[in-house]
Computed example of a mutant assay.
Amino acid sequence: MPAPPAASDHRGDLAEIVVDVAAIRHNVRTLRELTGVPVIAVVKADGYGHGMVESARAARAGGATWIAVVTVQEALELRSAEYDGPLLCWLTLPGVDLGRAVEEGIDLTAYSVAELDDIAAAAEAVGRRARVQIKVDTGLHRGGAPRATWAEVFARARAGELAGSWKITGLWSHFACSDEPEHPANDRQEQAFRAALALAADNGLQPGLVHLANSAAAVLRPSARFDAVRCGIAIYGLDPAPGRTPDIGLVPAMTVRSELAMVKELAPGDAVSYGQRWTADRPTTVGLVPVGYGDGIPRHAFHEGGSAEVAVGGKRRPIRGTVCMDQFVVDLDGDRAEIGDEVVLFGPGADTPTAQDWAEACGTINYEIVTRIGGRMTRTYVDSEAPAGEEPS
């Protein structure tokens, strides 16, 4: 298991996001061993805040068979970064030029006959057979072919295959409630997915890759693993179903840290930040952390019911008062601290708040915490498994 990343020199930066690529490799290996099937590593939204290209490289090094993103633009960026392996994208809009994606061998996802027609036109324009996966809606009622259209979509998919427009390389869907393993929607969706597979076979389709399970289902629902599992948040070491997932040894890959920009003393009755929503009830010291909601820190990290915490001097320190665009204040509880002392917002350390801690304090999910973080922060990559002095691969 990778060790927590060592401190790096981030002086002069407001804050630093440190991503340990060894943790991503480790998590992919762990998921492969647990599930016994190939892993499709999802690196959409800039790798959930970890960096899309670097996360893809680490995931592949950890044994991920496929890489998946949402947009054609993301997929093309990976191709430009010299990733030439299997690559899936799953959301396009009318009018998007699909020709280069076809030329680059990117698997395009279709939800409708109209999308298949667009792919056929792109394939004809560039003179190359496309790679297509079909996504069916089994109950999430977001993207994917509605059940009433499955027959016509499958028929068009087969016709295009026979005409040489494309190869149908996969069929997939997505759970709505996999992080709640006892939710009845999970059984309904899996049953619907199996019905879609049967109907696709009746139409002569033999999709090469059948996948349904996202991170939570990959861990909690073995019957949904099929040909591969499609893992996003878990490859970054975060719990896809907090409170329900057994400890399988995932390691958080992201650490966010800054340093104190100011330390001052408060007297009882002194109020802090906009709206003066927190007032000291005792003499205390507070520290100023030079990042805020302009850098992805949730403004509701402080609220009437409590607050998120950071680590300063080996202790957890609560945020006090409204989070501002560029800064927030933490209560040092009278302890001595100096300008420049390290502040760890969240990370994998034993005495450090986690992204899940922040999610619970902010009333959201760990996905949002890591994905939104950034702004003016510097992102640094480390490899805790590499020999000293060796650059991350």
Rank of each mutant, 00 (worst) to 15 (best):
residue 315 K to N: 05
residue 274 Y to M: 14
residue 306 G to Y: 06
residue 267 A to N: 14
residue 273 S to T: 10
residue 321 G to F: 03
residue 279 T to E: 12
residue 273 S to L: 04
residue 308 A to L: 06
residue 284 T to G: 01
residue 275 G to S: 13
residue 321 G to M: 02
residue 293 Y to C: 00
residue 302 F to H: 12
residue 277 R to T: 11
residue 286 V to P: 13
residue 293 Y to A: 00
residue 279 T to M: 12
residue 319 I to D: 06
residue 296 G to L: 02
residue 287 G to M: 11
residue 319 I to N: 07
residue 289 V to I: 03
residue 318 P to D: 04
residue 267 A to D: 14
residue 301 A to Y: 07
residue 298 P to R: 11
residue 288 L to S: 10
residue 297 I to W: 01
residue 288 L to D: 10
residue 302 F to D: 10
residue 292 G to F: 01
residue 307 S to A: 15
residue 314 G to A: 09
residue 289 V to Y: 02
residue 278 W to P: 10
residue 267 A to H: 13
residue 319 I to F: 05
residue 274 Y to H: 15
residue 308 A to P: 09
residue 286 V to A: 09
residue 284 T to P: 04
residue 318 P to C: 09
residue 303 H to F: 03
residue 289 V to P: 01
residue 288 L to R: 15
residue 309 E to F: 10
residue 292 G to E: 04
residue 267 A to K: 15
residue 286 V to G: 13
residue 268 P to W: 05
residue 267 A to W: 08
residue 312 V to T: 03
residue 322 T to V: 15
residue 269 G to R: 05
residue 281 D to W: 03
residue 290 P to G: 13
residue 311 A to H: 09
residue 295 D to F: 06
residue 282 R to H: 10
residue 320 R to K: 10
residue 281 D to H: 08
residue 298 P to E: 06
residue 319 I to Q: 05
residue 296 G to Q: 03
residue 298 P to W: 04
residue 303 H to Y: 04
residue 316 R to P: 04
residue 283 P to A: 13
residue 290 P to V: 13
residue 316 R to M: 05
residue 304 E to V: 13
residue 294 G to K: 07
residue 283 P to T: 09
residue 296 G to P: 04
residue 295 D to Q: 06
residue 296 G to H: 02
residue 274 Y to N: 13
residue 306 G to S: 07
residue 274 Y to A: 15
residue 290 P to C: 14
residue 314 G to T: 07
residue 319 I to K: 08
